[in-house]
Amino acid sequence: MIEATTVHGLTAVVYAVALVVLWGWLRQVSPEHRRFCTPIVLVVGLAGVASAVVAAGVGTITVNGSEVVVPLFVESMIAYGVLYAVMARLADVEGRALAAIVLTPVVQRIAFEVAAISGGIVALLGLVIVVGGHLAIAAYLLGPVWTQTRGVPEQRRLLHWKARNLVLFLIGMLIAYAVISLFGVFDAFVSLVIQQYMAVLIRVGFAGFLLANLDAVGSTSLRPTTASETTPADYSSH
């Protein structure tokens, strides 16, 4: 049986190779697009570092009898936040709406970790937060945000549509995997392999998808143009 550290090491190698390719690709795009894509490429690098640290046996702690891999925990919160932020910015989502979209996966990730190290009602509550959070953000993206994208250039609107579907599917599958894992269907090795595979898909796949569709990104930026107080309710009213 392959050791967990070996799996993490292989994952780190995959991240490293992907980082090199993506970085080279990033150097060929315009500065404006480069600025837009750099965070997601950096997420790939960060994931590689985290995997390498874990492979080195560093950062794993035991809480309430369960292991918590701190580097991956931290990296995933950052990665999901960046991922949702990029996807939301393609639809020109700003302000509180953007903050809500970015913070929701962070909360979900924390809730999942809490559920994993605890039991009983707390674990159940954490699971409800994970699933409910995904359903809520999906409804928000499919409803108000999609309606608000009527003012966005058509190419970028369609790119947002594809990115949204991709992210919602991958995160949904990740949640499904987590729930199945809680029921003990997977053993440690299979669970680790699937987890690493999905992590690579979410990070590297999304980065590649974004770079492959840069023509549709246009002049948008990750930085909101105004610090408006726009809320999801505002989008709903459009």
Binding site: M173, I180, F186, D187, V190, S191, V193, Y197
Partner: peptide, 13 residues
């Protein structure tokens, strides 16, 4: 069972 479930999950994914 874990291997089979993992394979099915990967296929679905």
């Amino acid at each position: 069972l874990a291997g089979l479930a993992g394979t099915i999950f990967v296929v679905t994914l």
